[in-house]
Design a protein around this nucleic acid. Structure first.
Lengths: 188, 188
DNA sequence: CATCTGCAAGTGAACGATCACTTACTTTGG
DNA sequence: CCAAAGTAAGTGATCGTTCACTTGCAGATG
């Protein structure tokens, strides 16, 4: 039989590419299906709506990324080791699929509010790391939200500069510089 | 005569609010005009199209903000003084109209590519400051794009945290902390 | 002072295009 | 043969934009 799962994956990837390239609202169902080479009905065989397609794309990857980040942290002791491990995870995730990362960054503000509060996000993972480090005295006390935002800012903006071609090294190559910068940020 | 300029300004503000709240594509002309209390024809008396309305809103403020940033820098000597002055300008700009700032941040990636290369953007202002500081030895040599992105990241992400209510102090109150963090970022 | 005039400002119905989505039908392959 | 996968022609709603028309007002005219 014709393999429906393969079609579904091709739809998912085409949607990801187009959402990043043109934006969600500016991408029509026809754009997606004609990029894949199927008709609109085929898409609705696999997804209930355009919104659900976008949501599937977001929630699956956003949550699994948060899980990876948290897993990278456990077992490590000390702020430097934990941030280093999380940055390693982040850089590999980014370099492996920059398009996916762009999508998560792009729609994060619209979609992350739909997540139940019980679900841990990547932002939560960083915040927990910061709070732990403050409690254990690894970094000086300060507003955890301020420090978390600063750390996220460095990483996300460097990643954005990479996406726009302003930085020509992959993030994995920049991992040590990123780690050093993050450590300086946190050492208030 | 009925004051057309006042109507135009009310359309501009309503569009700003709605674009930030719902996004550009999700905001219809009817949404804007009914928020103002006029009909659709009246909007087209003042703006050629929905796109031009969004573009006017962006380009005017984006450019004038870049001008303010550059002006804050001139006359100051030393990286610390220059970054401090630019942060002061930024924080006041943000606190004065967070909604406007949100809009510039939101549409920046779509619209800034339409600016001619001769126009100086806020990002350019920061990059120039970084390059000057490296040449004069105020900060250690590094990839200017990396340092620029890191500095921007800290400031923009803290501003974003403020917008989302995660930080409850105004940016002007956080200016000293922001300055200190930026100095630490640049001292590679 | 009263009236006329010209024009910017605003109205509201209509237009064609496009959209997400549906449905009745056909093809495919175990 | 049968169920899943895919097709193709629709549906109604909504969108940005247009246009013929009305309204309000400043200044010229007599």
């Amino acid at each position: 039989m014709r393999d429906g799962r393969e079609t579904k994956e091709r739809i998912t990837r085409a949607a990801l590419t187009l959402f990043v390239e043109k934006g969600f609202a500016e991408t029509s169902i026809r754009d997606i299906t004609s990029a894949v080479g199927v008709t609109e009905g085929a898409l609705y065989r696999h997804f209930a709506s355009k919104e659900q397609l976008a949501w599937d794309l977001f929630s699956t990857n956003y949550i699994s990324f948060a899980t990876e980040l948290t897993r990278a942290r456990i077992g490590r002791t000390g702020f430097g080791a934990q941030i280093g491990a999380m940055l390693d995870t982040f850089c590999r995730f980014f370099d492996e699929d920059p398009e996916l990362f762009s999508y998560l960054l792009l729609v994060q503000h619209n979609e992350s509010g739909k997540l139940p509060d019980t679900i841990k996000t990547p932002v939560d993972a960083v915040r927990e790391c910061v709070i732990d480090a403050m409690e254990s005295g690894d970094i000086p006390p300060a507003d955890p939200e301020f420090v978390t935002a600063s750390l996220l800012g460095v990483v996300l903006q460097v990643a954005t500069a990479r996406i726009y071609g302003k930085i020509d090294k992959g993030l994995c190559e920049l991992k040590d510089e990123l780690t050093a910068t993050c450590l300086r940020v946190a050492q208030g």
